[in-house]
Design a protein around this nucleic acid. Structure first.
Lengths: 259, 259
DNA sequence: GCCATTCAGGTACGATGTACGCAAATGCAC
DNA sequence: GTGCATTTGCGTACATCGTACCTGAATGGC
């Protein structure tokens, strides 16, 4: 038969429970993926090698290939499993701003719980069911605001861009602090990494230096900082929603009841 | 002496032209980096292995380690070399909006010329001189608008997030079209990749499906699409600049045109 | 009980980054 | 010019990776 190779893991469903001859499978995609996620959470995604995952499950590396064609596909599965941490109601509430804020905060939580998630997600174009679910929710939140689907897609993209970027920045801090081996609290106060320190002291980039020095005196928690930027993005979205713009220009934050 | 390991390649300058004994170096960091960039441009960053780069230079793999401590550092050097393609005037012009738009368009051009750049840039927290130069320019564009340095940093981050995300989406299309082996024009018209097609036909994600189907009828070039989103982001920034806000309240942001 | 079918997983191979060591090249002291 | 300390070029070697292939064990239908 024409066994055309599937373009993605999502086109190749796991072998179902059948009633024919042959040995029963002892593992499952989900089980394997979960083990990989656990390793990646604890030691980074590069530690989640095929041998290591298999070892964690008490089997041999090659056994995994009965469930997953390539390691890259396993990465897609990991992304999707991690995205299932993003808890959302079945349908948007009608308050688009609250819905999108919830989405962003949930995404941040998932991104911090799985520090490899955002990097992986933005490195490879994957579209697993969980990602589709989240994306559909975002589009649904903007549905009924008078925006066309193309505009909604663009705005959701803009929100995603901010969310991913902000999470990445937050993780970058944490990782740099860990890599230099200093505890984050002390590091934030009087240290900035040897290289950044040298750049600042060189005086060659005065505005960058000012931003570094000021950020040390800014007593915002990462979460507060995230919400602050998020509010900016949501304001920007609000400014582009036609039905809101005609009514109130000074406080476009309140919801639009869905009829 | 206390040879503390440098935290980044930027702390370890290339050995300068000295006047002592010993063989003269036959290559240079820039030469090696340039060869690596050329390979990555043509065949992807994963093709730029140490052996391959060395081969391109007509030498052995281990020779490269006289100039670069690890391959990861070479990736940082590649990022910085690619960022030097971003051509900017020495100082901002005073028109912040024009300056930031120029920056974004230059970044897009560099990102398209080096399809690996954005992925690499957002995967690893690097801060080479070229990146610092570009970042300083962005902060300078917003300097004098009445914004504090922290707000400027936040807004520049927001702009970068959009720029990177938009470039990534654009490249994702191109790559998917290439991977499925169809010419992009035809692909955009009547094809969408087997998996996306199946998702659309399943009817399970109606808004996502609508966005896919509508995007096929939207006759915007990628560049137009990019500029459209960019204008939205710049509008959002404009809305947060105090000096503008007091002056013209009637144009905080243009509403989306319903065509 | 035979047999087609399926899974478990050991062995092996090519490719990768890179540690080590040695030969060749080079400028300085004499 | 002649050693000599120093630096570069790079071949060899090794650990580790993804994964192709193959054999043996398990399983249910006939």
């Amino acid at each position: 038969m024409a066994d055309e190779e599937p373009t993605s893991i999502w086109m190749l469903p796991e072998r179902q429970e059948r009633s024919g001859p042959g040995r029963r499978p002892g593992y499952s995609r989900e089980q394997i993926t979960r083990a990989a996620v656990l390793i990646a959470d604890a030691e980074g995604v590069e530690a989640a090698t095929m041998r290591r995952i298999a070892g964690e499950l008490g089997t041999g590396a090659m056994s995994l290939y009965r469930y997953v064609p390539r390691r890259d596909d396993l990465l897609d599965l990991m992304i999707d499993l991690a995205m299932s941490d993003v808890e959302l109601p079945d349908a948007p509430s009608g308050d688009w701003r609250a819905d999108l804020a919830l989405l962003a905060r949930q995404t941040r939580a998932a991104g911090l719980r799985h520090p490899w998630l955002i990097t992986l997600l933005t490195s490879r174009p994957t579209l697993g069911p969980q990602l589709l679910r989240v994306h559909e929710f975002a589009l649904g939140a903007l549905d009924g605001t008078g925006l066309g689907i193309d505009d909604s897609t663009g705005l959701v993209g803009m929100l995603d861009d901010y969310t991913h970027g902000a999470i990445r920045r937050e993780l970058g801090w944490l990782e740099e602090a860990r890599r230099t081996g200093l505890d984050p609290e002390r590091w934030k106060r009087d240290y900035m990494g040897p290289y950044v320190r040298r750049v600042v002291e060189s005086g060659e980039f005065p505005l960058f230096s000012r931003s570094v020095l000021d950020s040390r005196t800014a007593h915002l928690t990462p979460e507060e900082r995230f919400r602050h930027g998020l509010d900016r993005v949501l304001d920007a979205i609000a400014a582009l929603i036609p039905s809101l713009r005609t009514r109130s220009a000074e406080r476009p934050a309140r919801p639009l009841r869905r009829s």
